[in-house]
Computed example of a mutant assay.
Amino acid sequence: MRNSGRPLLGIFGGTFDPIHYGHLRVAEEIGEMADLREVRVIPAGMPRLRADPVASLHHRVAMVHLATENNPRFKLDDREIRRHGISRTVDSLREIRQELDGVALCVITGADAFIKLAEWHSWRELFQLCHFIVAARPGHALTISRDDLPRELKDECAGRWVSSAEGLKQISSGLIFIAPTTLLDISATNIRARVAAGKSLRYLVPDAVLNYIATNHLYSGEL
């Protein structure tokens, strides 16, 4: 029987340049595992800690829509695309917390991004706004001892780890769960390189996204 505590809502952000099956499979499994009421898929507008996306805002939103529209658990949230300036997770979490009452927000992130959490804007405040569900990617697995974490982050995370997703339902924010998921070693960088080299994307991205990339000549250098 499911724990009857606080309902959980997933927050899954990224540049999604393009969105691919690696993203989608992790979000699907975590949504099921943690009994998430919904997974908000939030494309970043202007990311603060990485290079600007290759595809335009319009194209990235369109690809996320195509990839998620038939999954009732997923919901495209374009607030960071509509917001002017640098995209900051803390801003989106503040807004969503104001919009939704009684729901615990769970930021879904890869281990490689979580290790750099102390570089995020107002990163300590994030623990007051959300839980973290960390999906380890190939080559970036967090150890049981969390020795991979920088000292500042390791100290902040002490006492926040839970061994199951059910533990996240007990309080509104501040906990961390490492999710055992199927890790597909697919990267958007590799996908863009394959397009530029004229190679197939089949089975790396949904067919609707594959067709959109081809129709709009994305990543190929064509006009």
Rank of each mutant, 00 (worst) to 15 (best):
G102C: 06
A165S: 11
A118P: 08
L24R: 03
P47M: 03
M63S: 12
E38S: 13
R50Q: 14
L168K: 04
A44N: 13
I176K: 10
E32M: 13
P206H: 02
G45E: 05
Q170D: 05
K154G: 15
V134Y: 10
L76V: 12
T109Y: 03
R97T: 01
V26Q: 07
R202Y: 10
L175V: 02
Q98D: 11
N70F: 10
H23E: 05
E125C: 09
S122F: 13
S200K: 10
S163D: 14
A135C: 09
E166M: 05
Y212M: 00
A135W: 00
C157T: 13
P7E: 02
D52E: 11
I133Q: 02
L129P: 01
A135M: 11
F127W: 08
G14S: 13
N211A: 09
M46H: 09
L168A: 04
A158M: 07
H121V: 01
R194E: 03
E80K: 06
V195P: 02
A62G: 06
L100C: 10
G167E: 01
A193M: 07
W123N: 00
R79S: 06
L218T: 00
V195H: 09
Q170F: 12
Y212Q: 01
L36S: 13
D101M: 10
S173E: 08
D52L: 14
A141G: 10
D77I: 04
T89S: 11
A104P: 10
P47Y: 04
